[in-house]
Design a protein around this nucleic acid. Structure first.
Lengths: 116, 116
DNA sequence: CAAATATATATAAGTTTTTTATATATTAAA
DNA sequence: TTTAATATATAAAAAACTTATATATATTTG
């Protein structure tokens, strides 16, 4: 059960992060990576080097707010969606679904045209 | 009917090209862009600046062979798959499908847990 | 007690990929 | 004759991602 080489993950990172936050309300970076790994049975793995820049970018763009909290002596940075972040989450998910539909048309096995 | 902002296209270009060639046998660059646009009703648009580098890369990697042909006074460069290109086409399509399944898990509306 | 593992965030360097702009050239239509 | 369609291609720049590294605490294992 190897993970896909993750080349398909390109361009979907923001969508994943926004959607998880829309669903969970409040998450910290490490939690996001663990949640993605568990829910996809290791199929999708977010690296920290990719995740943190995305989180910072989303924050800059006004989609996320942060609050730092000390838990068990370690610092955690919680992220929550702003209203425009919530709107963007919904939008990105539906854009991704549209994209997948288009991809299915391209990738479906070509029909033998013997029915009809 | 705007096209998706194509950020999701990142990482899927090779897969699209390989699959179309596996299906059609022989295509030239321009034809690939037109075919993708038509079949997806404009939802997915490949730009030349992205397509040609990918074609050249796939050729370098030994997945494609080229033959130039003059048609109506214009030069056309036809691409066909090598055996390893055919194998890669099948592999990439199934990897993409696996990826999409994993994404569906992440992006599906969270269940209300009221059934069961 | 030491070492390893898990938790937690972050940046920097380098590579790859993609976008945008540009160049070239022929044919057909307005 | 100018515009649009057909056809390939590269270069510069931007964006995204990978890989490596740094830091630090807590917990588990030996």
């Amino acid at each position: 059960m190897e993970a896909t080489s993750n080349e398909f993950l390109r361009g979907t990172l923001k969508t994943i992060v926004l959607k998880l936050l829309a669903e969970q309300g409040r998450m910290y970076g490490y939690e996001i990576t663990q949640s993605v790994k568990e829910r996809t049975n290791g199929e999708i793995t977010l690296t920290f080097g990719a995740l943190y820049p995305v989180l910072h970018k989303l924050e800059q763009e006004g989609f996320l707010l942060t609050e730092s909290e000390e838990v068990d002596g370690r610092l955690r940075k919680y992220y929550t969606l702003t209203p425009s972040g919530s709107a963007t989450a919904i939008q990105k998910v539906s854009e991704f679904e549209r994209f997948v539909e288009a991809m299915q048309i391209l990738l479906q096995p070509q029909q033998g045209l013997s029915i009809g």
